[in-house]
């Protein structure tokens, strides 16, 4: 992928959310996307055709994060109502609500087999919920964080979570170790590289940091954008060649992965870009913003 192929052209605008959109996520194959926002709804879209497919309403407060299983059959979402919702995509019904977080839930993810939902909360804990059994108790509570956990990522064997206490912690289930990488700055969002060797951590000092997961080494820092108070996403492109992330001024930035130079930056939204999600295969990206729109970008 060359520089020119970066998705800089606005392909579609998905309107429908009332108020800020807090997260927008592609599904596994990039065909659909999910968004959630302050209007307490989760919406399913076809971003490529700009279609709104379905709305999921049940949350009592804002929805902060949403994730869909690889087979597109189940959703999980979380938000200000301290619960993790487990949805059936087709019927739009809530299958289960996982209560247990003492405070708002910031992020939620399915594991590879869609059997566990892992949520990260403001209550400084990461909790794992079992989707297979009927128990609504968490099957694992990780409470080694000393501040709000903002973001969580899962690999096949690990739970990785970033917290405002400045740490990115990797919990390796296979060997039962916790590896804590202290970045010294509140971590806003983490995302895994596609080869799963690196973690991109967005810190509140307006810096994205790329960490080598095996060594904990800081590989690169990406600066230029503003990220001081909002929970904002960042991610790598599908080829891991570029790093992308939003800014509080409504811009989207692209950095070169290796030399950390800003390849491109343009105004995408009128307000804070809360979420970016890159298409798993194509040069396509969706961004969500506080201005209530989700924009689809293509090259």
């Amino acid at each position: 992928m060359s520089k020119e192929d970066l998705p800089r052209k606005e392909a579609n605008v998905l309107r429908g959310h009332e108020g800020a959109v807090l997260a927008a996520r592609f599904n596994r194959n990039g065909e659909y996307c999910l968004s959630c926002g302050k209007d307490r709804t989760i919406r399913l879209w076809n971003p490529h055709r700009g279609l709104h497919i379905k709305t999921y309403k049940s949350h009592g407060r804002e929805v902060r994060d949403v994730h869909v299983t690889p087979d597109n059959s189940k959703l999980c979402s979380c938000g200000g109502d301290r619960q993790v919702f487990y949805w059936d995509v087709a019927t739009g019904r809530v299958i289960r609500k996982f209560r247990g977080h003492d405070s708002e839930v910031n992020a939620v993810k399915f594991n590879e087999y869609s059997s566990v939902v892992v949520s990260a909360g403001y209550d400084r804990s990461v909790r794992a919920w079992d989707c297979r059994s009927h128990s609504t108790e968490p099957i694992q509570i990780i409470d080694t964080f000393s501040d709000s956990v903002m973001s969580v990522c899962l690999t096949n064997t690990e739970i990785i979570a970033g917290s405002v206490d400045g740490t990115v912690r990797t919990f390796d289930i296979r060997i039962g170790r916790e590896i804590s990488d202290n970045l010294g700055q509140p971590v806003n969002c983490i995302s895994l590289s596609n080869d799963a060797n690196c973690i991109l951590a967005s810190c509140l000092d307006s810096t994205l940091r790329l960490l080598d997961r095996s060594s904990g080494e800081l590989l690169q820092e990406y600066k230029g954008h503003t990220c001081k108070s909002f929970k904002m996403d960042c991610c790598l492109t599908n080829t891991d060649a570029y790093v992308t992330g939003g800014s509080e001024d409504g811009f989207i930035y692209f950095w070169d992965l290796v030399d950390a130079s800003v390849i491109s930056s343009f105004r995408a939204h009128v307000s804070v870009v809360t979420s970016v999600s890159y298409h798993p295969k194509e040069n396509c990206m969706i961004t969500a913003s506080v201005d209530g729109t989700i924009r689809v970008w293509a090259s």
Partner: peptide, 15 residues
């Protein structure tokens, strides 16, 4: 930073 620490962590069997 970054500094790395390692701790023991015990995943629950069901996890």
């Amino acid at each position: 930073y970054p500094k790395r620490e390692e701790f023991q962590w015990r995943p629950s069997p069901i996890l």
